[in-house]
């Protein structure tokens, strides 16, 4: 009996996390971990494992859209995956060897950071005067896409490849360390250092998330962090929620929703910090 109720409750909560993750554009994983940890008292590593599995499910499920829109730059994605997968394995390794409190603290900080960057408006949709880094020329990373809103083809160059790689290593590390997709940090790297058009950054980031997550999922599985009793309802719930969320997205004004969610997310971040410092006995 108790198993049944727990499974159903986990699934219901995960559907909501999937819906809001899609609507807010910050992904289901980062919402799930505090819910699982604070509300359901799931151990941190098990919450991370369930989140990571749900990240793979949503990103692989949506891959068709990101490839078909022809905005994702597959070459850039593949190249940067060198850094994200390496970072992810390192992050997972660290997660196995540091005190759990640290993971909760880092998670709290990352959640607070993601909340603020969710609110930030992008100064420029299309960066001007970008000159390709020599590596970008050698790797033929520059590309073009058709912008439906501007109704023209946009050609773009790719700057700061080494810095971008560095940032991707950090993004991958956070993904492996916390069991999240870390899309925020991937977009940041492509935005700030490589100076890609925003649409290309976000689409390519989504393209990369599944592969990055898979790089630590094997490690998680072997370590026993992917508990079937938690991961199964969570993965199915988030998958359903994300599909609903993408449908709803067209009809809702996401900015208002984001403002509404800021206090909730910040409260969750504080709870995770407190849990990490051992103030709360979660």
């Amino acid at each position: 009996m108790t198993t049944t109720w727990l499974v159903l409750a986990l699934m219901a909560v995960s559907v909501l996390a999937g819906v809001f993750g899609a609507l807010l554009g910050i992904g289901g994983g980062i919402l799930l971990i505090p819910v699982l940890h604070i509300l359901f008292r799931v151990p941190t590593h098990t919450a991370m494992g369930a989140s990571l599995v749900s990240v793979i499910a949503t990103s692989s499920g949506a891959a068709v859209a990101y490839v078909r829109d022809k905005i994702s730059n597959i070459r850039i994605g593949m190249f940067l995956e060198i850094a994200t997968t390496t970072g992810a394995v390192c992050g997972a390794f660290i997660a196995a060897h540091v005190a759990v409190g640290w993971l909760n603290i880092i998670f709290g900080i990352v959640l607070a950071f993601s909340t603020f960057s969710m609110l930030q408006k992008h100064a420029t949709e299309l960066p001007e005067g970008v000159r390709s880094h020599p590596w970008a020329r050698r790797l033929r990373l520059a590309g073009s896409y058709h912008d439906t809103r501007l109704d023209r083809d946009v050609n773009y160059e790719v700057a700061g490849v080494p810095q971008g790689l560095g940032m991707m290593y950090v993004a991958g590390m956070l993904s492996g360390l916390l069991g999240i997709g870390s899309g925020t940090f991937k977009v940041l790297g492509m935005d700030v250092f490589m100076r890609l058009p925003f649409k290309v950054s976000s689409s390519t980031s989504n393209f990369m998330i599944g592969v990055t997550a898979a790089a630590s999922a094997g490690y998680y599985f072997a370590k026993g962090w992917i508990d079937p009793g938690v991961s199964a309802p969570v993965a199915l719930g988030v998958l359903i929620g994300a599909m609903l969320g993408t449908r709803l997205m067209v009809r809702m004004r996401s900015h208002t929703l984001r403002l509404v969610f800021v206090p909730v997310l910040l409260a969750a971040a504080v709870e995770m910090l407190l849990s990490g410092f051992g103030v709360r006995g979660v």
Partner: peptide, 11 residues
């Protein structure tokens, strides 16, 4: 779950 983890590897 293992099949799920393998999908990006396949890609």
């Amino acid at each position: 779950l293992l099949l799920l983890i393998l999908t990006p590897v396949l890609r």
